[in-house]
């Protein structure tokens, strides 16, 4: 019995040890998103109105005055950070005409909640769009034990769509 308990403990430690880390470098994500030929980076300086909307979604001010993005045609890549419990989760998004095309957790620094990196979670965002209330038009299922990470990635998805809308408006004007 003691052996099994020891084995379980060892397994749990090894799983925790493998959990966090850099899954994909941000610029590798951007390069892959544009089939090896990423466009030049551009930046958006969010207006006060946009900042207020982002604050409403995140529950705090977005840290930074400008946000970098890569745009080609209707497709835009975003690399955004949000804290899950204690540390930022870096997530890459590709938005296309107001909908999410790809979500990928790039760097996970927390000790728990790393399950959000898996496709069974990120695939839920495929073709998700924003409602008039800046909410996602589809419910995203939670992962038991990873609630804070799920919340962080979901909030970032809403911010990415909001930014995509703002960039689209900027290009149209």
């Amino acid at each position: 019995m003691k052996k099994y308990v020891l084995l379980l403990l060892l397994l749990s430690f090894s799983v925790t040890g493998l959990a966090g880390g850099v899954y994909q470098e941000p610029d590798a994500f951007v390069t892959e998103a544009f089939a090896g030929h990423p466009p030049k980076a551009a930046v958006i300086w969010p207006s006060s109105e946009l900042k207020a909307q982002m604050k409403q979604i995140l529950g705090h001010d977005y840290k930074g005055l400008r946000i970098r993005y890569w745009k080609e045609g209707n497709r835009t890549a975003w690399i955004l950070d949000e804290i899950g419990k204690d540390k930022p989760i870096t997530t890459g998004f590709i938005t296309n005409q107001g909908k999410i095309e790809t979500v990928r957790v790039l760097i996970f620094r927390e000790s728990r909640g790393w399950e959000v990196r898996h496709a069974f979670f990120t695939d839920q965002f495929d073709n998700v769009a924003l409602t008039n209330m800046n909410r996602l038009d589809r419910n995203i299922d939670n992962i038991t034990g990873a609630t804070l990470s799920v919340r962080a990635v979901t909030k970032l998805a809403r911010v990415a769509l909001l930014l995509d809308e703002a960039v689209g408006e900027k290009n149209n004007t």
Binding site: E25, P26, D27, V43, G64, L65, R66, R68, D81
Partner: peptide
């Protein structure tokens, strides 16, 4: 004022 955090990545 903080403008941006810029990870350098692989480049």
């Amino acid at each position: 004022e903080l403008v941006e955090r810029m990870p350098t990545g692989q480049g």
